[in-house]
């Protein structure tokens, strides 16, 4: 019984993966196969750490950069992710996706997100 349930879950996961549609902000609904997952959208929040020959990074700065590089929240639920439209217009997107159901609640362009961040 457990085995059958596990197989069923695998089937549902494969089905969701096969038919996942991403609503591109410019090009409209597109098959997820055109996109490549590029990781947690937190990667956009790179710490301002610029070591050089005269100034070494403080311990706090090193810690902050370590956390940025290696630590991920990995939530079971809503998650902001970076996706790249490799087989399309080569745009970078921030997709808010529920990791439990694959449901996508928001799709935005990284360029727009960064413009807002700068202004």
């Amino acid at each position: 019984m457990k085995k059958a349930k596990a197989l069923n879950q695998t089937y549902i996961r494969q089905w969701n993966k096969k038919f996942m549609i991403i609503n591109h902000p410019i090009l409209g609904p597109r098959d997820a196969n055109e996109f490549v997952y590029k990781g947690d959208a937190e990667l956009l929040n790179r710490p301002h750490w610029t070591p050089n020959a005269t100034k070494r990074a403080t311990y706090a700065e090193q810690e902050e950069f370590h956390d940025y590089l290696y630590l991920r929240n990995n939530p079971a639920g809503e998650h902001k992710e970076l996706w790249y439209h490799e087989q399309g217009d080569r745009s970078w997107l921030i997709i808010t996706r529920d990791t439990l159901t694959h449901q996508i609640s928001k799709v935005e362009l990284v360029r727009e997100f960064l413009k807002e961040k700068v202004t």
Partner: peptide, 8 residues
């Protein structure tokens, strides 16, 4: 037109 993937 569209840029997409067909058979990968």
């Amino acid at each position: 037109f569209a840029r997409t993937s067909m058979e990968h």
